[in-house]
Design a protein around this nucleic acid. Structure first.
Length: 265
DNA sequence: ATCCAGGGTCTTA
DNA sequence: TAAGACCATGGA
């Protein structure tokens, strides 16, 4: 099976490698070898790869791939809207085909609790230590299991706390709230502050207006737009990029890390 | 040895 | 509301 991307056969519409390896949940949850991305979904092996400029995936995972890669997002239109100045134009150009991914909320929460004051390679190691049979262990198992010995640092108690809170809690209801309400609600979870909440809302619940401010994005927002602090960065992002601030954030994050972000023009 | 990493919590002023 | 100590771990 394959998808015709919009516009059809336009390779700029999806850079699968970049998207899957850009510090989003798939970077932590999927295996990656020989240009193929693999993991277990609902007990079955799923595989995604590019072939002759077209997206391919294991039979039966078409709907999953479409949701994961947000193939219904009009990337051209979104990139136009966030290209508010020369700097953002360059960021968008240098990361052509980078898409926001939509992941399972619980797995996303686990990923970004592990991300606290941490680096991407070690986040991946931690998340994988919390996976059983290819999937992040469900809240019930995480609440019951002894996490000491997994080298999670002080994050083990946060993960335990989140697992216990999610049990008997309609986690999906957060996706039905408006952004502001959902942002505040998520921060009642142990280990979830403003940044982790925005990551879970963006990558787990699909709120494209969420703007996670980590050290890289904060550095960009200070240098490029004179942001004074984290809160100020969020405010400026909301004003400049509004409903697509999440996409702007991912292009900023990727560009800042790869060092291809020009000062400002 | 010191700094840093997709930060949060808690205390203090 | 804002700043600072503290938190575990491993790589640079």
């Amino acid at each position: 099976m394959l998808f015709n991307l919009r516009p059809p056969n336009n390779p700029v519409d999806l850079d699968l490698e970049l998207t899957m390896e850009s510090g989003q949940p798939p970077h932590f949850l999927w295996d990656h070898a020989c240009g193929r991305h693999t993991r277990i979904i609902n007990g079955e092996k799923a595989e995604i790869w590019m072939e002759k400029g077209r997206l391919r995936f294991t039979e039966g995972f078409g709907d999953y791939a479409r949701e994961l890669l947000r193939l219904d997002d009009d990337l051209d239109a979104i990139c136009s809207k966030i290209s508010t100045d020369r700097t953002m134009e360059c960021a968008v150009e240098s990361c052509a085909g980078l898409r926001i991914t939509k992941n399972d909320p619980w797995e996303t929460l686990v990923c970004f609790v592990c991300s606290i004051n941490n680096n991407i390679p070690r986040i991946r190691k931690m998340v994988r230590s919390l996976m059983v049979d290819g999937e992040v262990m469900p809240p019930e198992d995480m609440a019951a299991k002894d996490l000491s010995g997994l080298k999670l640092g002080y994050r083990d108690k946060f993960l335990k706390g989140c697992a216990e809170k999610v049990i008997g809690y309609e986690f999906e209801k957060i996706g039905l709230m408006d952004y502001g309400e959902a942002w505040k609600e998520l921060q009642t979870f142990p280990g979830v502050g403003p940044k982790v909440a925005d990551c879970v809302l963006l990558f787990g619940f699909g709120f494209l207006e969420a703007f996670p401010v980590d050290v890289w994005v904060l550095k960009s927002m200070k240098r490029l737009y004179g942001a004074k602090n984290e809160r100020d960065a969020r405010g400026k992002a909301a004003l400049m990029w509004g409903e697509y601030a999440g996409y702007a954030q991912q292009y900023l994050f990727q560009s800042e890390r790869s060092g291809c972000l020009i000062p400002k023009g």
